[in-house]
Design a protein around this nucleic acid. Structure first.
Lengths: 118, 118
DNA sequence: TTCCATAGTTCATATGTTACGAACTATAGG
DNA sequence: CCTATAGTTCGTAACATATGAACTATGGAA
């Protein structure tokens, strides 16, 4: 099995970041990771998605995030802990991640059903 | 021939924007349009690219930008003038476009070849 | 009006990318 | 060594993209 490979900070591209986060599943995973600042395993998201996303697909999504340089994955015992590389990316592309996460938040709020007046 | 179709501002999604701008050609076109604030035709970019990009491909790129809600295209005589919808998007997703364009600029300066993500 | 040039779109298709079940690998704990 | 858990890899079907060829739209000239 190949070792988990990560791009160095200078090999991270805007195109790669945008492509990775243009998928709603990956955006949700990344928002979770970046928001909580704590590591999370692949199977944590299997639970969150209520097992609607096959684990092979989830594994590929994590690989995409990893290869775009968005997350760092490290094996810890039987599972793989993923942490966001947001502080590194913030250094290279200031404001980018914050703007994208905020936009996703705005969109989530706007998509909510209008509240019925009482 | 179908009329040029544009999403209304509330139908524009972050995913759509990120996907559209994750392509280096589209990102370059959009940066040009957003930067100059003036309209530009499809064939202007044919010139700029030194005809290395086929016009059918360019046409599809403009369609992608249009359908993502990033540009507005209007026929004016024989050509189609494209303008950036950045002020509308700024209202819906504050700071998003600026952060992305700035990140592309940072990357261009850092000298990395704009590689297309898989 | 007919013809032509320019600008762009659409179509067919070849090539590339993604999703997901099945089979596999890795690790920990009996 | 056996089993369970966590995740990866592989094969392939479904979907997406790039591009040449054919088409449409518009304006101007003959």
């Amino acid at each position: 099995m190949r070792p988990l490979v990560h791009p160095s900070i200078e090999d991270i591209t805007v195109e790669g970041i945008l492509h990775a986060l243009s998928d709603p599943v990956r955006a949700a995973i990344y928002a979770q990771l970046a928001g909580s600042a704590s590591a999370a395993s692949c199977s944590d998201f299997l639970q969150i998605s209520n097992r609607h996303i096959p684990k092979s697909t989830l594994s590929q999504h994590f690989r995409a995030l990893r290869e775009a340089g968005l997350v760092r994955s490290e094996r810890q015992g039987v599972e793989v802990r993923n942490t966001s590389r947001c502080s590194e990316i913030e250094q290279r592309f200031p404001g980018l991640i914050k703007a994208i996460l905020n936009a996703h938040k705005v969109q989530a709020i706007s998509g909510l059903p209008a509240k019925k007046p009482r």
